[in-house]
Nucleic acid binder design. Structure first.
Length: 423
RNA sequence: GGAGGAAUGGCAGAGUGGUCGAAUGCGGCAGUCUUGAAAACUGUUGAGGGUCACACCUCCGGGGGUUCGAAUCCCUCUUCCUCCGCCA
């Protein structure tokens, strides 16, 4: 959520920045400023009224103390009108606040200055590319065929018990997935992240705090009976651990990692791109989350990018990093780097990580602040990234590591798997 | 599921109708001392709104009520704790 005081001061800069997302926010921002003015003037009027009635109350108290009951009773009558006025003003104020919040909730974050302008994924900027793309023969198979050949994943069984997009992992397929989760968590904790195990369902306040609600309501599974939501990413429960907190500056940064399944309705997805593991309703992911001092958040973002790189180097997967353009940038993000692994057999890039700095956007919704070194309260910066999302990593490994004899297991995973070949 | 108890500032914890936005301790900040740090000592320090700055307003789990006046009384919801029952 953007900060009103900043909009008030830099309206034009905000309008300018939002054009990068392909949004003309001039009208909305003007409405924000107007609603804010109404809010402030109503508040001032209400405060004045309340101030009056506070004064009367104190005087009445004094009169009673002095035994001047008649005078006190006379004064009581004066308060009646004030009460009615303040009630009316309070209602007006509530309406103004609600209108203002409505507007603010629907405005996306301001893109960082380095974010390229653009409308969709075609305008994303390739920052770097690394790793060797293996040369596979013509007989190379996509992962959904390999999964069948070696009996690693059963998509039909998932359909039977739940529906499309809920695969069942079996045997060495299941074990490979478990190995990856443990390996990722080890890698993250070695880098200093504290491991958390969190609930996989969250309440409405949590969904709002990280910005999934109300923006992405339709993408989440909603448990209507209890008004809870299945998490679309560990970002939601983990970041919300700190919702409403006022931290001390020396507590920063806070760094967390956690493994959770993720649930996404993916309404509107279709076609060959959703085949196999490419797009699922339930998938596993290991996430890293950082709560940072604003001065350090971009250095921290770079650090997270380096960290994810080192994992992909370990796994010896060819990958590239994209800087998302304004049009492809998530609602809450100021700057996002996507990591993609090249799948040789599919001849396409698969997104396996997304690393973002949300600056104060989430913190403002979460009311997550810290006391700075001057003793003043300030919003923190929040960041998160996948390290990593499992299914496409598995797809990438299966496809890139296939040989006529079977699928080789990346060296770093062998100790975690207990086998070095799937055949 | 049944019976009791509780929810106060970053944290712990006093406060039961009228200078209570709230004692005290810890923590934070500033300073003295020290080569530096620690310790000790001194000062300062709740949050949000508002203002150039004051003034002023709101906030003692959420919502509603009683009253001229509520952290304090009443209703309601939520959460936590203790005991009993059930149970992975």
């Amino acid at each position: 959520m953007l900060q009103v005081t900043e909009i008030r001061e830099n309206k034009d800069a905000f309008i300018q920045a939002l054009t990068k997302r392909g949004i003309d926010a001039a009208e909305d921002l003007e409405a924000v400023i107007k609603a804010d003015e109404t809010r402030r003037s109503t508040q001032a009027e209400l405060d004045e009224t309340l101030s009056q009635s506070n004064k009367f109350s104190k005087e009445i108290g004094m009169l009673y103390k002095n035994g001047e009951v008649d005078k006190a009773n006379a004064m009581k009558e004066k308060t009646v009108e004030l009460k009615e006025t303040s009630k009316k003003l309070q209602e007006q104020l509530n309406a103004a606040v609600e209108e203002l919040e409505q507007l603010l909730h629907n405005l996306p974050n301001i893109p960082h200055e380095s974010v390229p302008a653009g409308t969709d994924e075609n305008d994303n900027e390739v920052v770097m590319e690394e790793g060797e793309v293996p040369k596979l023969g013509d007989e190379a198979l996509p992962h959904w065929e390999l999964a069948k050949k070696y009996d690693l994943i059963d998509f039909e069984l998932g359909v039977k018990i739940t529906g499309a997009g809920f695969p069942v992992f079996k045997g060495k397929g299941a074990k490979l997935q478990r190995a990856l989760i443990t390996y990722f968590l080890d890698k993250n904790t070695e880098a200093g992240y504290t491991e958390y195990q969190v609930p996989h369902v969250v309440n409405e306040a949590s969904g709002f705090g990280t910005g999934q609600l109300p923006d992405k309501e339709g993408q989440m599974y909603h448990i209507t009976g209890d008004n809870l939501y299945l998490i679309p990413t560990a970002e939601v429960p983990v970041t919300n651990l700190f919702r409403g907190d006022l931290l001390m500056h020396n507590e920063l940064p806070i760094t967390c990692t956690g493994y959770t399944p993720c649930f996404r309705r993916e309404a509107g997805s279709y076609g060959a791109h959703v085949r196999g593991l490419n797009r699922l309703h339930q998938f596993d992911k290991v996430e890293i989350v950082r709560i940072e001092h604003p001065d350090n958040s971009y250095a921290a973002l770079d650090g997270m990018v380096e960290h994810v790189k080192s994992i992909l180097r370990d796994l010896k997967l060819p990958y590239r990093i994209l800087r998302l353009c304004g049009g492809d940038l998530g609602f809450t993000s100021a700057l996002t780097y996507d990591f993609e692994v090249f799948s040789t057999a599919q001849d396409r890039w698969l997104e396996i990580s997304s690393v973002s700095n949300f600056e104060t956007f989430q913190a403002n919704r979460l009311k997550l602040r810290f006391k700075n070194s001057e003793g003043k309260n300030e919003l923190v910066h929040t960041l998160n990234g996948s390290s990593l999302a499992l299914p496409r990593v598995i797809a990438g490994i299966m496809e890139n590591y296939q040989t006529p004899e079977g699928i080789k297991v990346p060296e770093v995973l062998v100790p975690y798997c207990g086998f070095d070949m799937i055949s």
